[in-house]
Structure formats: structure tokens, C-alpha cells
């Protein structure tokens, strides 16, 4: 069976590093995670997230630096608000909130990255594909 695709937007400074660590440490995380490197989680526009879902992703993962650690100071606060409002909106449109997940992964947290990625993959498996018309 086709594994559901997960598009993940990783901030360049913390989360991308974290994912790199996970890779380097040969930690197990699902292959169907497509990584898009962005400068900051605050740069992930809701339009992009919807576009990813529209184009076949079953879920979207947005990872940024922990609160207080954003290299642009406040990008991740903005990301939090946008993701939460977006999830509320998507829910009204029949898209389960779990399909969009925002979380924090620091540069050193390779394990945390793998854990989140695996959880997300599991959730997507349970939810099944999105099948938007």
C-alpha cells in the first residue's frame, strides 16, 4: 500500500538541523516525509499548507524552534497562531485537525524529530488519504 505523503516545513535554524541529526544518527523515521526547508516557521503561509494538502499530501508538519529560540525572535509565535487558526478553519471544511501539526524541534533534538515524524505518520495512516476532489 502507498504510504501517505507528509509534507514537512522545517525551519532552517533549529528543526532542519534536528532532522539532520536524526538522519545522521540513523534514527528511524518514515520515508514518506517530504522535507521543505524554510528560513523560519513564521514564513509558512497557510496558503502553502493548503496547497500541499490540495496537491496530495495527507498531512502537513510544521516544525520550528522552541518558543524564545526563534532566530528571527518571534516567527514561531506567529506560526503558532496561524497554525491554530488554520486548523480550526480546516476542521470546518471537513479536514481533520490532526492533518496539520505544528511543533518545536531544536537543533540537537534528533530523537524528538524522529518521534514526532513517526507519530505523524501513524496518525496519517489511521486517518487515511485526504482525497480532495
Amino acid at each position: 500500500m502507498n504510504e501517505p505523503t507528509i509534507v514537512s516545513f522545517l525551519c532552517n535554524w533549529c528543526s532542519y538541523e534536528g532532522a539532520d541529526k536524526a538522519g545522521g544518527a540513523r534514527l528511524n523515521y518514515p520515508a514518506n516525509i517530504r522535507i521543505v526547508r524554510v528560513m523560519c516557521s513564521g514564513r509558512v503561509d497557510p496558503e502553502l499548507v493548503i496547497q500541499a494538502l490540495k496537491e496530495g499530501a495527507s498531512g502537513v508538519l510544521i516544525l520550528g524552534c522552541h518558543p524564545g529560540d526563534c532566530h528571527y525572535k518571534k516567527g514561531n509565535y506567529k506560526a503558532l497562531r496561524r497554525a491554530y487558526l488554520l486548523k480550526k478553519t480546516l476542521k470546518q471544511l471537513g479536514i481533520e485537525e490532526e492533518r496539520v501539526r505544528l511543533d518545536w524541534v531544536a537543533a540537537g533534538e534528533g530523537e524528538r524529530f524522529a518521534e514526532i515524524a513517526n507519530e505523524m505518520a501513524e496518525t496519517m495512516k489511521n486517518l487515511g488519504p485526504l482525497e480532495l476532489s
Binding site: D45, P46, E47, I50, Q51, P67, G68, K74, Y77, K78, R81, R82, Y84, L85, L86, T89
Partner: peptide, 22 residues
């Protein structure tokens, strides 16, 4: 803009509570 709603929620989310966001 492609998606007016997404852009709108993004714009509003950006300014919610900015003053005290930390």
C-alpha cells in the same frame, strides 16, 4: 493572492496579541 480566506486568516493571526506574544 490565490486563496483569499487563507490570506485573511494569516493576516489576522499575525496581529493577534502581538504586543504580548512572548
Amino acid at each position: 493572492v490565490i486563496d483569499q480566506g487563507a490570506k485573511g486568516l494569516s493576516a489576522i493571526a499575525s496581529i493577534l496579541g502581538v504586543e504580548d506574544e512572548e
